[in-house]
Every structure is written in structure tokens, then in C-alpha cells.
């Protein structure tokens, strides 16, 4: 029954003939993997990277490059509490707790920066006066390398949570301002015209046209901003913070603990990849009506 071309049930591929039972199983497994967006070649690449890393440890001295096994063991050891770090007076020494602190900061920054940036961007795209005011400001902020602002934020807001959060918020805000503005400009005016002929007012158009119509590109921007936010948050913590995964790296760097740094970086990387995967799945679901399967492309 699956052999007919159906535009309606969402399948775009044309199956030439009904697959035989033996093939069916392989196809099903493959399809399941595809549906979870697990790329087999990506997994193979990851394994190859670890093997290459492990191979390198036979050439490079251990003090410069720890072996993968030791790093994995270190992650397990330091996951809840890291004894080595208890001398430094950190409020949180475990990798899990530090990562949670960093992740919470990233989440706050992406949500707050994303909301403000999107609202400003949509507003600027539709109200020329607003744009005349906001464009020069945000374009200037966007041109400054964001890390240059870090020392100012540290001076103004101290080494607590909020200077790092603010730095990442500004970064996310500027990206989303541009994405939302461009999305609103690219939205075909025929939708707004059509809504108006049905008697839609400004509020209706915002809710029924502008927000859903720009959602794919805005969420694509959120994903790009999220990917960059992890690194920025870690660096902000490295430059001055009480805790977080970046702070852990800074302390370990002071004691030349390469293995510990690798462990912290690996945890950060894994969390960032998982977060992107979840965000991607959410975006795909919310914008499943969109013609382009890939989002985030402009």
C-alpha cells in the first residue's frame, strides 16, 4: 500500500515497489535511526576521533595529552565532588553541579536575549521610526567583539552570575534582532494583505501572521545563538566568576591539570551537543508546516 505517491500523508519520497520482508527490517531500523536524527556516519566519525586521540597519546607525552580512558575516568571521579578542587574555596567543585550552573546561565541568557532581540527585530522591521533608532545601536554592539565587553561587565556587576549572563544575553539579543528583522522582511506581504481582507486588525496580524510566519527563521537564529552561547559563557566564567565549568577550567589551568581540563571540556561539549539536539527536535516539530525541512538557513 505504501507504493503509491502520496503528497498528503507527509511522505515526499516515491517508493518504487513494496520492499521485501528481509529488506523491510533493515529499512525500519534505518528509518528509526533517521527519525531520531542519529547520523551513523557522525557516530563513526566520533569513534574515529577517539581512536585517533588514543593513538596520539603514544606519541605525545602524557603531561601534554591525557589518554581518553583517563579522561573518562576523571569525569566519573569528579562528577559529584572533585577533591582536588576543595582547597580553592569553590562553592561547587563537581562537574555536574558546575555544568548545571553554566547551563542555567546559558538558558536564562538565551531566553531573555532571544525574547528581547526578537521583539525588537520584529518591531524594527514594521515600524520605520523604531528601526531608525535601534539599527545603529544594535549594529554597533554587533560589530564590537562581544568579549571586549567582558571586562566592563566584570567591573560594573562583579564576578557573580549576572555579568556572565549579561554578556551572553547581549550576544543572543544581537543575533536574534538581526534574524527576526530579516525574517519579518522576507515574509511575503500577501499574507498580511490577505489577513486584512478578512478583517484582521494589528493584534490579529501580529498573532496570526507575523509571529508564526517568522518562527522558522527566529528559531533557527535561537539555535545558532545557543551553539555560540556555551563557549561564550565558559569564557566569561574563565575571565571572572565564582563557579561554573569555565571557573573549573581556570582553576585547573592554574595547576597545569591537563586531564581535569579535558574532562571539563568534554562535559561541556557533550551537554552542548545534547542541548542542540533537543533544540533541533523542538524546532522541527514547531515548524513542521514549513516548506524547508532545514531551519536556520537564511
Amino acid at each position: 500500500m505504501a507504493s503509491d505517491t502520496s503528497m498528503i500523508d507527509g511522505t515526499t519520497a516515491v517508493l518504487p515497489s513494496r520492499p521485501r520482508a528481509a529488506d523491510q527490517r533493515g529499512v525500519t531500523v534505518w528509518a528509526t535511526l533517521r527519525s531520531f536524527r542519529i547520523d551513523i556516519f557522525g557516530a563513526i566519525g566520533l569513534v574515529l576521533l577517539v581512536v585517533f586521540w588514543w593513538g596520539l597519546t603514544f606519541v605525545v607525552p602524557r603531561s601534554s595529552l591525557p589518554s581518553p580512558l583517563n579522561v573518562f575516568r576523571r569525569i566519573a571521579d569528579d562528577f559529584v565532588v572533585a577533591d582536588m578542587l576543595s582547597y580553592y574555596g569553590l562553592p561547587e567543585t563537581g562537574l555536574m553541579g558546575s555544568m548545571a550552573y553554566t547551563a542555567a546561565n546559558v538558558l536564562i541568557a538565551v531566553v531573555v536575549g532571544g525574547l528581547i532581540g526578537t521583539v525588537l527585530g520584529l518591531f524594527a522591521a514594521r515600524v520605520p521610526v523604531a528601526r531608525a533608532i535601534s539599527d545603529p545601536i544594535l549594529n554597533t554592539v554587533g560589530t564590537i567583539p562581544i568579549l571586549v565587553m567582558a571586562p566592563f561587565f566584570l567591573i560594573w556587576f562583579g564576578t557573580g552570575r549576572w555579568s556572565a549572563v549579561l554578556l551572553v544575553t547581549v550576544y543572543v539579543l544581537v543575533i536574534l534582532y538581526l534574524f527576526a528583522q530579516r525574517a519579518a522582511e522576507n515574509l511575503d506581504p500577501v499574507y498580511e494583505s490577505s489577513a486584512r481582507t478578512f478583517g484582521a486588525g494589528t493584534g490579529d496580524i501580529l498573532r496570526d501572521i507575523l509571529i508564526p510566519g517568522t518562527l522558522p527563521q527566529v528559531l533557527g537564529g535561537i539555535r545558532i545563538a545557543l551553539a555560540g552561547a556555551w563557549g561564550l559563557e565558559a569564557i566569561a566564567e574563565l575571565l571572572g566568576a565564582q563557579q561554573g565549568i569555565g571557573k573549573i577550567i581556570e582553576v585547573l589551568a592554574g595547576s597545569l591539570d591537563i586531564e581535569g581540563i579535558f574532562a571539563a571540556l568534554l562535559v561541556l561539549g557533550i551537554v552542548a551537543v545534547i542541548a542542540d539536539w533537543i533544540a533541533g527536535a523542538l524546532v522541527r516539530y514547531v515548524t513542521r508546516w514549513s516548506v524547508s525541512a532545514r531551519v536556520g538557513t537564511t
Binding site: D188, V190, Y191, S193, S194, D208, I209, P212, G213, L215, W289, S290, V291
Partner: peptide
């Protein structure tokens, strides 16, 4: 042009 809203 196609004016059917793609998101509904």
C-alpha cells in the same frame, strides 16, 4: 500569489 497561510 498563494495566500493560503502555510502555518495553519
Amino acid at each position: 500569489k498563494d495566500s493560503v497561510f502555510p502555518w495553519f
